[in-house]
């Protein structure tokens, strides 16, 4: 590496930047832009050095996993019904759980996973694909649904 900085240091710095962005930036788009830049820095550091392909594969996979995990954690923090109930029980401010659950059906339509005609809903091709993937994952994990 130029300047003697190892790929390990670069990748730890990249994950630290993503962690800081997670705390400081509440918007998903802004967080993702910073995270994409951090992953790109890791890729560039790999390309600019004589690092082994195995090491590059591990750090890039780790950085991508960190980005994905933090994105999903943000989704959970904002949308989790159980967490909202816990916050309400702890004296914070939270919405009615039944209302939160009902809102998800409109989200399914907004995300193109289901189509609604009046009061009736049906899955789109994307919605069916997600159901199949989730069912396959459940089978692998041995979870009944």
């Amino acid at each position: 590496m130029p300047g003697g900085v190892s790929i390990g240091v670069v990748s730890i710095a990249a994950t630290a930047v993503m962690g800081a962005a997670f705390v400081l930036l509440r918007q998903v788009v802004a967080f993702s832009i910073v995270s994409a830049a951090a992953v790109a820095a890791v890729v560039a550091a790999c390309a600019a050095s004589s690092t082994e392909p195995a090491t590059c594969t591990l750090v890039i996979a780790g950085a991508m996993g960190w980005w994905t995990g933090l994105l999903l954690l943000r989704a959970m923090l904002v949308r989790s019904v159980s967490l909202s109930m816990l916050i309400a029980a702890a004296g914070g401010d939270a919405a009615d759980p039944a209302a939160l659950i009902e809102r998800r059906l409109d989200d399914a339509a907004a995300y193109g996973l289901a189509v609604g005609q009046g009061d009736r809903f049906e899955l789109t091709a994307a919605g069916r694909l997600i159901v199949r993937c989730a069912a396959a994952a459940d089978r692998v994990l041995g979870r009944p649904r």
Partner: peptide, 28 residues
């Protein structure tokens, strides 16, 4: 380098926990 392994491990774990939690808890 152990730092590389740690980045891989905790990154993969974060991704796995996120996906796993959504599979079991997502109301959507």
């Amino acid at each position: 380098d152990p730092a590389v392994l740690a980045v891989f491990w905790f990154g993969s774990l974060a991704g796995w926990i996120g996906v796993r939690s959504h599979l079991e808890s997502s109301i959507l």
